[in-house]
Amino acid sequence: MSIVSCQHLDKKYKKQYALKDLTIELEENRIIGLIGRNGAGKTTLLKTLAGQIVPTGGEVKVFGENPFNNLKLSANTIYVDDQMQFSLEMRIHEILVAAEMFYENWNRELADRLIYYFGVDRYDFHDQLSKGMASTFNAILGLASRCPLTIFDEPTTGMDYSVRQDFYRALLKDYIAHPRTIIVSSHLLNELESILEEIVLIKNGKCILHESIEDFKEYAIGLSGDKNVIQSIVDHDVIIHEKELSESQVYIAVDNHLSEKDITGLKQQGVQMTSVEAADLSMFLTNDTRGGIDDVFKSS
């Protein structure tokens, strides 16, 4: 069953499009990574799914219904980001009480254990927490509420490396025990990729790729070798990324659709073939230019 369905979604702020003709279908009970650069429209898309933003065009359906102002959606969705603003008059333990009241699947034991493990002070006010602590608490809230649709928008902002690892591990373990649809957005893929099932790449308000993570890892292939040899065999259109290693040597990432003949040809000409790491690939695909930072410094 498709839990999220967006058709030609537009969202315009003033004169600028945050989402433009975005179409996407997400299936139930998966962990989906939403990857894009800052400003690509990740937050706008996620907030639209959470019913907090009205799209200016197109159609969005979550659980088969329009999410805006929808009680059923609200009861089954939690949206977690680092901007969550709780009542200034409530302490952490009071917020937990409120969450338990609202969310049917709330697991108090899990919340209490995580709070204890991560060392969040129950008697603090939310705005007294440090940035990392606040993110940790928000993430705990997102986990313990066990909503059928759980959305984490850049959940690890401000967290330490070890806390991030712990959080992703906790997310995976709780997902294994209670499968549900979890969307995690990030501008970085590497720490996240192992727990993902699917990946969605978004660039300039458009969904440019939606694949299973395993397919994504085989999506591209890296070629390094003689510039002329590679350019003679590889079609220019399929080049995703290009980096000059030296005068004559070049590294190129291409769509993994080369024919057997091309592959043997390249191999025979001494071109090295490597797989492209998912994190690198996502970066290549979401970058605006095909080259890298080196191109900036290249004297023409």
Binding site: R30, R169, I176, S194, E197, S212
Partner: peptide, 17 residues
């Protein structure tokens, strides 16, 4: 697949594969 996912900290779908 779930035990494997937990064991290796990977998505269960990957383990199933």
């Amino acid at each position: 697949q779930y035990q494997l996912a937990d064991l290796f900290n990977i998505n269960p779908a990957t383990a199933a594969k």
